[in-house]
Amino acid sequence: MTLLDFINFYLVPGIVLGSIYAVGAIGITLVFGILRFAHFAHGDMATLGAFIALALVTAGMDPWTALPLAMAITAGVAIGIDRTFYDYLKARPKIVTVMASLGVALMLRSVVQMLWGVDPTTYVTGIVRPTDYFGILLRPRELYTLTAVVLIVVGLELFLRRSKWGKAMRAMSDNPDLARLSGVDNRKVTMLTWAIVGALTAASGFMLGINTEVESMMGWHLLLPMFAAAILGGVGRVQGAVLGGLIVGIAEELSVFILPAQYKAATAFALLLLILLVRPRGLLNGKVL
């Protein structure tokens, strides 16, 4: 096997996959860091986002133009879900909200299955053969995916570090009571968080869909690697989620060298166990944004 084969068939797919995990893991980390619960409906929210984009594409839009719109719509849905379900359980122990999010996951999936059915479909019919860049084979959709991920991560980092609302989110993540005393409106920050999380899930669902197929279980299958990525990098850290996503994605693709291929899915589990044993706070000490 040549180095180019290694890059083309193991490393590049790993990086693309890892970027998709990373975008999803950022959402998980935001919910955990600011609202302090594990959001199990994350995967199915990604499915919903992917299908909203599909509806727009079916209506005649170009897939990459449909993406921002789908992100906006899913952001609205995420706020709606928070208002309808999670907000109502705010005063109860967090475990109740965690379980409720599992229920929301099942509801979202059923809605998708009722509206669009269970057959897999695609944004664009046909196959795309890669372009050769000095021996490295890349498809346009892979380049777009990587670009979109970089834009999202840089944009989010800037927003959290520089803007007033980003600072408010970080303050609430640090200490919600103190933030409220200092004049941060927790309600608005919660809404803002859900808007960002909704948009991010739609992006991860869309990017998974455009690189494979769109089907009703796609998001659910993403959930475990996304959680593994978030915990691996350090819960509550955006850079950690990105790092974790890339590690999990690349590790899954490279695992076929040492393990039979049917254990590929177990790689994320194994990494998760290992990091919990060796470094439970994650690679970049997790806790606050």
Binding site: F9, Y10, G14, W220, H221, L222, E253, A261, Q262
Partner: peptide, 20 residues
Amino acid sequence: YSGHEDGKASYRSDLAQLAR
């Protein structure tokens, strides 16, 4: 000759191994 689990996003490394 190799098995795989369902629901993964990429099977390119599996396929590369098989093609070898």
